[in-house]
Design a protein around this nucleic acid. Sequence first.
DNA 1: GCCAACGTTGGC
DNA 2: GCCAACGTTGGC
Length: 139
Amino acid sequence: MKYWLFKSEPDTWGWADQLAKGDAGEEWHGVRNYQARNNMRQMKLGDLGFFYHSNQGKEIVGIVEVCALSHPDSTTTDARWDCVDLRAVRPLRRPVTLETCKTDEILREMVLVKNSRLSVQPVSEEEWNRICALGDLSA
DNA sequence: GCCAACGTTGGC
DNA sequence: GCCAACGTTGGC
């Protein structure tokens, strides 16, 4: 099982919107970047990811699960772009801010810190566990 | 609102 | 295949 991180501007699609979709989940559509797309193509059912609010908040607010494998993005007819579906699993009790990630010994190496523009990124198991701990989440 | 970093496009 | 121009992202 792998871990990921998904970024979205809360004005466009925030954690609250994701939560509202419930267990049915929703397409993570709109990605028009090859690296991000390739990451989605590697995802398996049950893979987990963090939900990050960019621009406003700048913090990791929740956990999502991959509930559909990569498939054509319904918002375009361009065959290059596809995406997975995500469903909300649970919020972090205590959001983990970008500021925290930048100063944390373990998290300062995250893609989120190193390449802030990549919208779908891998997260190592070590990073995952660290953020869960900081987010006041037990497993 | 600014701007640095990055990705994409298109002319050559 | 290179690279300049341009557009977008996202932190500040």
